[in-house]
């Protein structure tokens, strides 16, 4: 891919790469804006920019990640995701085959999630101005009337559910990026969760909050929830699913899996009465087979997340600072 011809190159990419994969009745209009019918309820609108490195990793690539991430951001707000935009910043020299692979996986991810990529944009920049490819996706969805899912809704007594194993995505990215040989079986969990969430909301309509524990992992997400609702959260260490290979790699690297990013997991906070139904709905879904009740919301220690260890002591789970810092003196 070469930079310079500007508009002409973008047009060419649109015709040769984007439209064949992403084409759909809305996008095919190729107007300056996408137009579609509104649905009842409130509109949910989100945006995220994906700059992950490496762009290809076990279990996915930057393309499906950009679709799944935005779909999940809508779904965890209780919305039914409908339309996405896709903005590409491409570094000159990016192999066309790589771009094509990425766009194809975006199309596949959108199809699986049942969303339409409704508009898009492409810019090609000089070498060094970005790292191969950056993708921005924005998304629009509709929240059915009467649904109220919010990070301020947590109540003492609620159950905390997790849809599956943690740390897979972050460990896959880290070990691939650093070329560590001991990670061979770790795959990203990148997946769109709107289907599973829709099933769950049928049987557990009173879900208080949902969040996808992406950057900062379960530790960051639960701390944010505890803070927003001024409640405490108590986790049960033994109940938190972690794949053996992820646990092993994390232990070697001195990383707590609780702080590692996920891209296909969701935390559900639900009144205790609906916990079992919600769990069953998740487990019935392909993305929730290993779902578990991992903790509860408590009145004690508002704003703080505490984890009960198998020995019965309680360890404070802090907001991760980014880098692991030794603290043992």
């Amino acid at each position: 891919m070469a930079h310079g011809a500007g508009g002409r190159l973008s047009q060419e990419l649109t015709a040769r790469v984007f439209m064949p994969h992403l084409g759909n009745p809305v996008l095919d209009q190729l107007d300056d804006q996408a137009r579609f019918e509104a649905e009842p309820g409130r509109i949910a609108f989100t945006t995220d920019t994906y700059v992950v490195s490496p762009i290809f990793f076990p279990g996915g690539n930057i393309g499906d990640l950009a679709v799944n991430g935005t779909v999940n951001d809508l779904a965890v707000g209780g919305a039914v995701p409908r339309y996405l935009s896709a903005g590409f910043v491409l570094e000159e020299g990016l192999p066309l085959a790589d771009l094509e692979r990425i766009v194809a996986s975006m199309a596949e991810a959108a199809r699986k999630a049942g969303v339409v990529i409704a508009c898009g944009d492409t810019k090609v920049v000089q070498k060094g101005q970005c790292d191969r490819i950056f993708i921005n996706t924005s998304g629009v969805g509709f929240i059915p009337p009467g649904r109220d899912v919010s990070c301020r809704n947590l109540r003492p007594g609620d159950a905390v559910l997790l849809s599956g194993t943690i740390g897979d995505h972050g460990m896959a990215i880290l070990t691939t990026r650093e070329g560590l040989s001991f990670q061979s079986r770790i795959r990203s969990d990148s997946a769109a969760l709107n289907g599973m969430i829709a099933d769950l909301l049928v049987v557990a309509p009173n879900v208080h909050a949902m969040r996808d524990p992406t950057r900062g992992g379960v530790a960051a997400t639960l701390n944010e929830l505890a803070n927003s609702s001024s409640v405490g959260i108590e986790l049960d260490e033994a109940a938190i699913p972690v794949r053996e290979e992820v646990r092993g790699a994390a232990e070697l690297l001195g990383i707590d899996p609780l702080t590692v990013a996920n891209e296909g997991k969701v935390l559900i906070i639900v009144p205790a009465a609906e916990a079992d139904a919600a769990l069953a709905a998740m487990r019935a879904h392909e993305h929730g087979k290993e779902a578990a009740i991992v903790g509860k919301v408590v009145e004690e220690h508002p704003g703080m997340v505490v984890m009960r260890t198998p020995f019965g002591s309680r360890r404070i789970v802090e907001m991760p600072l980014g880098e692991q810092l030794p603290r043992i003196c």
């Binding site: 880290l174 650093e178 070329g179 560590l180 040989s181 001991f182 070697l252 690297l253 001195g254 990383i255 692991q324 810092l325 030794p326």
Partner: peptide
Amino acid sequence: QAAQVLEMLDKGVGTAESSG
């Protein structure tokens, strides 16, 4: 796991510097 730790050291991953 000595091999894995040596690999981490070679690549400078997951190691904190300390003058402890």
